[in-house]
Design a protein around this nucleic acid. Structure first.
Lengths: 232, 232
DNA sequence: ACAAAAGTGTTCAACCTACACCCATGG
DNA sequence: CCATGGGTGTAGGTTGAACACTTTTGT
């Protein structure tokens, strides 16, 4: 079927994906950047990206970019926005689909990440980026906040087992604001998507805090809205 | 700058836009479809679409498609999702960006719309569509519902002046559920984005209802969330 | 008179917010 | 003993859902 040539006269474009890669460490939301490996603007800080081949979907292209740069597969990915102003890339007319990815930082392939000079930056303080990549980050963060106010996002960013304090600190990092510990606990537990384990973590507090894990998606009840007051 | 040839070896793809065009009439949300004008699948019901040229953004391409088919410019457009499975279009590998558009139905160019057999269908009952277009409609409706629960969308779909009943009927059409007249009125007015005029519409009720209009965006206060209970 | 929509008010439950308070323990 | 986080409880305000009630007028 695709051997037929229906659209021979139609224009073709370069199509790329750019990945806004989020991780969480040291109570901070982080962003993975690398020095752009190709001209133009070679060497300047940029999002990781690549062209979309003719036999792969945009999602597959983004997975490929992630796998090459972090060694990780099976990563949460979500479309953010397509950037397509004809002059956005000084190297040519490239339509770029932005994805954001959520990476469990502790299980990354550190050597591969470091190999080409990639670095994690705190979301609150990262260098200026090539082209429209800064705007891509801004859009991606908004979309992540949106998602985080509807779904608990810890599953993709935290270890399998975690304390409620760790989950709260993650949310504080995502929304850049402090949250009331007691209220956060009650709200999150009311969602009934966490299971308390019979273990305690005593490294981060004297008393020790119960560890929780996410109920497997299939078994989880209907998730409810988490009202984090995001108005767009 | 774009005369430089940086990306000569990179793959190129056909890129298209498809528009999910929403209108509102007779207390129903409607969808504009036309018989697909080209092979393959020529003649079957489809969204209006077109290829993205090398000198225009995706948004400009969508505006062009809209202008050609409805005669309207300056239409509200919002990106929905990019569909890019390699086999999604049996005519070739086309990456398609879906937009939804909100059209003030009463000011459309009826002749132009009818010229190529286009028709408005109620959102609750439209024919099956080519390729993945049905899924595009589904995604677009969800996105519209999302937007409508954050922003009052009447500005793009209703006449300049309208009654609160008309606005409520619009929301009932978008969310496919009845809304309490009293509560809707209170909620909407509390947003402080409507201005009551000293005129009444007496064609839809015996008593007559005040007409309202949207406060111009610049002068409007900060819009607040309209909680229509949408969980995604 | 009656039906239908306009417009206002009231009640109850649910929820969010801001705290206070006790518990456990490592230093 | 005291600072820190763990965990529970509570008082007050806000909001949404359901619904009662009065007003107005065309038929």
């Amino acid at each position: 079927m695709s051997s037929q040539k229906y659209y021979v006269d139609a224009p073709k474009n370069y199509v790329a994906v750019d990945c806004v890669i989020f991780g969480y460490e040291d109570y901070e939301l982080k962003l993975l950047l690398h020095p752009r490996p190709v001209e133009p603007e070679k060497g300047k800080w940029a999002l990781m990206g690549g062209f979309c081949g003719v036999d792969e979907s945009l999602e597959q292209a983004a997975e490929r970019v992630l796998e090459i740069n972090t060694g990780l597969a099976d990563i949460f990915l979500d479309q953010v926005h397509a950037f397509s102003l004809p002059q956005r890339d000084s190297g040519g007319r490239v339509i770029s689909m932005v994805f954001y990815a959520l990476i469990p930082l502790f299980q990354q392939d550190v050597e591969r990440v470091n190999a080409k000079g990639a670095k994690w930056f705190p979301i609150s303080n990262f260098p200026s980026l090539v082209f429209d990549h800064s705007q891509m980050v801004e859009n991606a963060l908004k979309k992540l906040q949106m998602r985080a106010s509807y779904h608990l996002v810890g599953r993709e960013l935290l270890p399998d087992q975690f304390t409620l304090m760790q989950l709260r600190r993650l949310y504080e990092a995502i929304f850049q604001q402090e949250l009331d510990p007691g209220n956060f606990r009650k709200k999150v537990l009311s969602l009934k998507v966490l299971e308390r384990l019979n273990k305690k973590n005593t490294t981060e507090s004297k008393k020790g805090a119960y560890l929780y894990k996410f109920i497997p998606k299939a078994a989880a009840g209907t998730e409810r809205i988490l009202n984090m007051g995001i108005t767009i």
